[in-house]
């Protein structure tokens, strides 16, 4: 059985990121390529940050999801070039981040507004946060702290 690639992409889009489960690995932009080589399915995955501990969990989750769909001959290839950029986050993913309380990345280097109350009065607490891909900010109006998805 060799399911269509579009079908594979749909399945992958249902695999959540282990640390930000509201977005999928496809939303995150880390699945770079999916291709059949004979009966073997090769999936190219790129790490977000080089030391991100979620990387190996993601590979395992992808493999499990596809095995559950009946694809058994799978090879996951780690591909570091071109280097991952937050430009690859999908529009759907960005919207889901906001809904979840995480401000999406912006080229300007900081969040546009508080993901909770929408206030533009925001300030940086720390350049780093709870995972390698996030920084720690706070809102000047609702006073809540929030995560900002670092722009790289």
């Amino acid at each position: 059985m060799r399911p269509e690639l579009a079908q594979i992409w749909d399945w992958l889009d249902a695999v959540p990121d282990p640390e930000i489960p509201v977005i999928s690995v496809v939303d995150l932009g880390i699945v770079r390529d999916v291709a059949w080589h004979g009966d073997m399915l090769e999936i190219a995955v790129t790490p977000t940050y080089s030391g991100c501990p979620a990387t190996s969990v993601i590979a395992m989750d992808i493999e499990t999801a596809l095995r559950n769909r009946g694809v058994s001959d799978i090879r996951i290839k780690t591909q570091i070039a071109p280097a991952w950029t937050t430009d690859w986050l999908s529009e759907k993913g960005r919207a889901k981040l906001v809904e979840y309380g995480i401000a999406p990345p912006r080229a300007a280097g900081g969040p546009e507004s508080c993901p909770r109350c929408g206030s533009k009065s925001v300030s940086k607490v720390s350049q780093f946060g709870s995972t390698p891909c996030k920084a720690h900010w706070r809102c000047g109006d609702c006073l809540e702290p929030f995560d900002y998805f670092k722009c790289i």
Binding site: S50, S126, S130, H136
Partner: peptide, 19 residues
């Protein structure tokens, strides 16, 4: 905040080491 920042920097550096 600095504890988290230091740990994150360390993590990046160890990731680069693997490469």
């Amino acid at each position: 905040e600095e504890d988290i920042a230091l740990a994150n920097v360390a993590l990046d550096l160890i990731g680069q080491t693997q490469m």
